[in-house]
Design a binder for these strands. Structure first.
Length: 194
DNA sequence: CTTAGGATCGCCT
DNA sequence: GGCGATCCTAAGC
């Protein structure tokens, strides 16, 4: 047993490290999905994290084993998909915020009600709708159906910035993205090349 | 391009 | 009773 397991990711690493490693990884749910282009890290000692106040019925999956899913309902409307990391009991995870549609695009278009590729998975709620992620998948292992996780083909250029839609720890730069991708939820403010 | 408001449910104070 | 790890639409500059 090595640390490098599913999709070539070190699932026991810090959430921001896992979030970075996830960029470029292919994620499928029941065969529908694509390449991850945007993630956000959350951790136990992180006021913006659902796990900050300790285990509850809702966030219990975050305290479960790594490489499993944590799914929650946002604003009573949208499902959002996270992957758990660190070790069981720690309470760290990575929110999958956007992916580049690759496989099952026709099904995503039906579920999302649009033909615009850029609007299929460019946000955590949109992504969950396009991939039909629901609470039934909360706590499920990522190395078995309905999930498929595949390592990226090669090293990719990753950009970072502050997380989106939170009111605490707003200065922490734990949002990661694939450089230049048009499929992110919002542009990354890139620093000019010196 | 930026901002504001509504939808709508469950968790937490 | 308040407030979201969101999204969409409409209106204002």
């Amino acid at each position: 047993m090595t640390k490098q397991q599913l999709a070539g990711i070190d699932w026991h690493a810090d959430s921001h490290e896992v979030a970075r490693q996830l960029i470029g990884v292919t994620l499928l749910v029941n065969g529908v999905g694509g390449r991850i282009v945007e993630t956000e890290a959350y951790d136990r000692d992180d006021p913006a994290s659902h796990s900050f106040a300790g285990p509850t019925e809702r966030n219990l999956a975050m305290f479960g084993p790594p490489a499993h899913a944590y799914v929650y309902l946002s604003h009573g409307i949208h499902w959002c998909l996270n992957v758990v990391c660190r070790e069981a009991g720690h309470g760290a995870g990575v929110l999958i915020r956007a992916l580049e549609p690759v496989t099952g695009i026709d099904r995503m278009m039906v579920r999302r009600g649009t033909d615009d590729l850029r609007k299929l998975c460019s946000g955590p709620g949109k992504l969950a709708q396009a991939l039909a992620v629901t609470r039934a998948m909360n706590g499920a292992a990522l190395d078995a159906p309905p999930f498929t996780l595949l390592a990226g083909a090669a090293a990719v250029a990753v950009v970072e910035g502050p997380r989106i839609g939170i009111s605490k720890a707003v200065d922490v730069r734990w949002r990661f993205g694939l450089a230049g991708s048009p499929y992110v939820s919002r542009p990354f403010r890139s620093l000019p090349v010196a």
